[in-house]
């Protein structure tokens, strides 16, 4: 978890020019960090490359829009990191 968070927070800091010390596992990417959808695409691009995965952004968006998941499930960083860990584990399985 901590190493994934380190990578994610570093990517967010570099991509969105947000100081690292303002990024915590509890941070909400949109509400707390002010990341917009296009910035988030840049972040996903970087994370896909870093972890060798394809973050399923479209299906996440669909789940949120259809009420099957909350925005917090994917946009609170500790939850985003957990989703990334799952994707990495699935890739390595």
């Amino acid at each position: 978890m901590s190493s994934t968070f380190d990578v994610v927070s570093q990517v967010i800091s570099e991509t969105s020019e947000i100081p690292l010390d303002q990024i915590t596992p509890e941070s909400h990417a949109i509400d707390d960090l002010g990341i917009d959808s296009l910035d988030f695409l840049d972040i996903v691009f970087a994370l896909d490359k870093k972890f060798g995965i394809k973050i399923p952004l479209e299906s996440w968006t669909e789940e949120v829009n259809e009420g099957r998941a909350s925005v917090e499930d994917y946009f609170v960083l500790k939850n985003l990191c957990a989703r990334i860990d799952e994707l990495v584990a699935a890739k390595d399985a």
């Binding site: 695409l41 996903v44 691009f45 896909d48 490359k49 394809k54 973050i55 399923p56 952004l57 479209e58 299906s59 968006t61």
Partner: peptide
């Protein structure tokens, strides 16, 4: 460059 979910670079 990159084939992402719902986007490409």
């Amino acid at each position: 460059v990159h084939d992402g979910s719902g986007f490409c670079i």
